[in-house]
Nucleic acid binder design. Structure first.
Lengths: 371, 371
DNA sequence: ATGAAAGCGCTAACAA
DNA sequence: TTGTTAGCGCTTTCAT
């Protein structure tokens, strides 16, 4: 909520250009459209204007901007110069109509508010920008209805879709994938190229970490039943526990929220363990607050590992030890794959691209007091 | 990071409508673009196809979708039916080219990652959807260069811009406002319609609250020097302190981050007060952690009030008492204003639209121990 | 390396 | 209420 404004003086002074008296507060009241030409901007110059001014054919101007190299260097320079003088800018709509592609990508996430998506968004946006695409962020706010509607709107104007943790059914997803190139993120969908973090490896590292600290009985605070990621993590946990000769219990399903963590704590108090691995950071945070409220100390009485390494993980006390998912890399990988598809590569229905994760050790884990 | 995937079972069931045999899993490796027509989607039907099938003129089809009501109800029904059968969808690019408007709005924020913008984004998106617009979210990541570039890209394809807490100079902003309708958020820019929260009222409420708890000397942890909001808050604070017969000290400027709060704590420890008001929640959080680290208790030794009421404010301990800015309302108001402009209303250069704020009392404030 | 013609799909004007 | 005629600004053939 800060800005670099220099208008800090708060001067209401109004250099009124329409001069219709002192600030009429209400926005768009009566007066309809101003006479076209009033404060209205002149229609911008086109390739024809530039062509004429530069003494070439319109097509040459077009080429100068869309396929440089296919035009004489000198000619191109001259055209560019003239264009700059005239303030020419290529019209994306016209180009889109002619080429059928917009250079827009849709990125769908279930909840912008969820810190998990920050870096994904950044990764997607950076990689997209690099490839010459602008991204249209679609926030479905955890509603498959909203997701479908928003996607419906976006579909006809984008060249491809990055579907982050979709709330839609596999069937709906495949339906959409038939219409536009698509890559799924954080979720494997048959026949759809997908990019996922290495969930198995993540929980395994968490378990190892706990093991090294002397905890050999740990509780897993499970996520939503329908969660693909949760399934992967629980499976990975069981396998790892076998290899490491440790024991893992499961509590859940839990909502993937602070409240879910609180609920998990209730159950855990019935049968405490010195080690806990949570489905995600929010659950871990809720769990910690709840058990602290019951007089337990973290990490002295119980070590807890979160998952995702969200923004807030570093803010709570104790700061959360957690598995960091490479969200930026995830987003970037998805875009690369998507752009490849758009450029003409066949979509690969093969196994998901798996991106590595890593454990971030902070204050919520410590040696087993009993050891 | 969870999903509702049903693919857990791996059900391959696919009511294949294209029926080209059992899912050929591995599509393409080397081979370049597929023969146009292979897995490529057929070019979609146009108004001409629909017109022909329905036995009317193309224009009538066009009207049916763009100006319903201007066409006979029965005819319209028939056309819609035929269109549905053919799977006709109006082509936004063609429409945009013809009408010169895209029904896209740009929302520029300096940092998606900043919780402050969540609700603004939601408010903007909802209101925009209601008005028939899709929003293109532009994240400038605190860089005026990036902001300018992204805006550059977005400008030609949007009908208007909501500029949230811009990092650009007033001059740049006015420049852009000349090209497209615009509304500034959280910042007053001369000659540009703007919507801002009631900063003066906010700090005043914070001060009152502290006063009621018996603190009459409070420290203000100031934000960045260049911040418009900071100026407003400090000014509001001074005025309120006069009226309330309280005393306010100022420490700063500080970075609007957790680190800034830590820095502020250092200075505060030189001359502690029992009441503290921070520029924003992040600063408050940093401050609290730092003073706690020096053995001070919150709120027993010092009461602190944050600003903004971000997501994390409720997660830290003690939970933060803070001034909640009506971010969703802010976003919605901006869009209403913007759409009014687009629809033809004159831009109003008058004073900013001011949206009310409110104080959220949580655990970080308490009675003055000395009282 | 450059150009002329045609058209992408839709919507403004005007008619009828 | 409906239809006809022109474009919107760009990129595609296919020449030159």
């Amino acid at each position: 909520m800060d800005s670099n404004d220099t208008a800090g003086q708060g001067v209401p002074a109004d250099a009124g250009d329409a001069g219709d008296g002192p600030s009429v507060v209400d926005a768009g009241d009566a007066s309809p459209a101003p006479a076209p030409g009033a404060s209205r901007r002149r229609s911008s110059p086109t390739i024809y204007d530039v062509a004429q001014a530069a003494g070439v054919a319109p097509l040459t101007v077009s080429r100068t901007f869309s396929r440089p190299g296919r035009v004489n260097a000198e000619t191109a320079d001259r055209i560019r110069k003239v264009a700059a003088e005239l303030g020419y800018r290529t019209n994306p709509m016209a180009r889109a109509l002619a080429t059928t592609h917009t250079n827009l990508l849709a990125l769908v996430v279930p909840d912008i508010t969820n810190p998990v998506y920050f870096e994904i968004i950044n990764g997607v946006q950076d990689e997209a920008a690099e490839a010459g695409y602008t991204v249209l962020l679609v926030d479905s706010r955890e509603s498959d209805k909203r997701e479908r509607e928003a996607l419906e709107r976006a579909l006809p104007i984008v060249d491809g879709i990055v579907l982050g943790t979709s709330r839609m059914s596999d069937a709906s997803i495949r339906m959409i994938a038939k219409q536009k190139p698509m890559v799924a993120l954080n979720r494997a969908v048959r026949e759809i190229p997908s990019v996922v973090p290495d969930n198995a490896r993540g929980v395994r590292r968490a378990l190892e970490h706990l093991g090294e600290l002397g905890h050999d009985l740990v509780t897993y605070l499970a996520g939503p039943e329908a969660s693909w990621a949760d399934g992967m993590r629980w499976r990975g946990l069981r396998e790892a526990s076998l290899e490491l000769s440790m024991h893992v219990r499961r509590i859940g399903p839990l909502a993937p929220t602070v409240a879910g963590g609180v609920a998990g704590a209730k159950a855990w108090l019935q049968a405490p363990t010195t080690g806990v691995i949570a489905y995600n950071d929010l659950v871990a945070i809720g769990f910690i607050r709840a058990v602290q409220g019951r007089g337990k100390r973290v990490p002295e009485d119980v070590s807890v590992v979160g998952y995702d390494n969200i923004f807030a993980a570093d803010l709570v006390s104790p700061a959360l030890t957690t598995v960091a998912t490479p969200r930026r890399a995830l987003g970037a990988a998805a875009v690369r794959n998507l752009v490849a598809q758009i450029k003409g590569a066949h979509p690969r229905g093969g196994p998901p691209v798996v991106v590595p994760v890593k454990l971030v050790e902070r204050e919520s884990t410590g040696p087993n007091a009993r050891a």
